[in-house]
Amino acid sequence: MTVSAIIPCYNAEATITRAVESVLQQTAEIGEIIVVNDGSTDGSLAVLQKLKHTHRELVIIDQKNAGVSSARNTAIAMAKGAFILVLDADDYFEPTFVEKALKKFQDNDSYGAVMCGYVRVVNDKKILPYIPVAITLQSCLLHNGALSCLIFKKEAIVKAGGYDTSFKKGYEDWDLNIRILKNGYHYGIVNEILFNYTDTLDSRTYTANENDLALKLKIYEKYESDYREHGKYIYEQLHRKCNILLKDKQKIVDTTSFKLGHSITSIVSRIITPVKNLISKR
């Protein structure tokens, strides 16, 4: 099973070597590593050219800045492998991910993609390990649930039409996952922490969070008929989440520390309010 790794790169001179090396260190053979330098203005291209001298499997594409979706689509179009390993330039995989993911594809031909657990890397410290749960079209309409860096069957991406380049501020991976699931594919999971997500203020996650509502409405409008079809499921899940939040809130309100804090705040308020009124009358 041939694998092509694709890595979009924009101003990642400090991390692109680590990303490429995490692919080179995979215990499964990687046929090619396609890095798309998406109009970087730092030294990313020079770093890549230096890596190319010692790694023949590295393919460098230099293009004007067009965004991560465009960069990935460019690499996918060139990829020769039957499987596409997607990685961002500031993240990295553990060495056994591809080998274990390919085993999942062998075991279940319905898989269009396979993901794994991950940790966030903040200031070089690994925190908040997480193993994703199985996703369906219904669950993906409500919440993405899949990692942006994983391994796809190339045919699944091609049939879905690739990444939508209009999602410039994020959620392009969520949008692609919906279309792949709509085509009848399933997502497998390697139940191990084998992906490292570098969490910085420059991460696309923060841009997506800042535009969360607008992006979610964009997804809703694109798949409105699917949301209508699965409306009962989505309604039930949202209400379950609301009930959980209400119970969590009540637990906090019932704690001694909250009650004490509330009492102190009330006392201080009763003292300060007359003083404020007196000052305002002067």
Rank of each mutant, 00 (worst) to 15 (best):
Q250D: 12
Y185K: 07
D226S: 12
D88M: 00
A214P: 04
M1H: 09
I61F: 07
L201D: 13
T273E: 08
I244P: 03
K241R: 15
S22E: 07
V47L: 03
I135W: 00
D91W: 05
N243L: 14
E229D: 10
H239K: 10
A12M: 01
A14Q: 10
A82H: 09
C116Y: 01
K222W: 06
A89M: 04
E172Y: 01
E224S: 14
R270F: 11
N209I: 06
L51G: 02
L150I: 12
R179E: 15
K249G: 02
E57N: 10
N108M: 03
E99L: 07
W174D: 00
C242A: 11
T265I: 06
V86Q: 12
T136K: 08
Y187A: 10
I34V: 11
R270E: 09
Y233L: 04
L201C: 04
I30H: 00
A101Y: 06
S166Y: 04
G162R: 13
K222E: 14
F105S: 06
N183T: 07
Y235M: 13
S280Y: 11
I244W: 04
L45E: 11
K218L: 14
I61K: 09
A146Q: 10
D91R: 04
D175M: 06
L102T: 00
T17F: 09
Y171W: 06
T200F: 03
L260Y: 11
S40E: 07
M115S: 01
A75M: 10
T273Y: 08
I267D: 04
A82I: 03
K232C: 10
L45R: 05
K154N: 01
D226V: 03
K218P: 06
D254V: 08
K168P: 00
Q63P: 01
R240L: 14
T200R: 08
C242E: 15
D38P: 08
N123A: 06
N191W: 02
N108S: 05
A79C: 06
V119T: 12
Q138H: 11
L245V: 04
S40D: 07
N11L: 05
I60Q: 00
I267M: 12
K100T: 07
V59C: 00
G162E: 13
E57A: 03
L58S: 05
I60A: 04
V121K: 12
F83P: 01
G261Y: 09
I178T: 08
G231V: 11
H186S: 13
N183H: 11
I6C: 13
I151E: 01
L213F: 09
E172D: 15
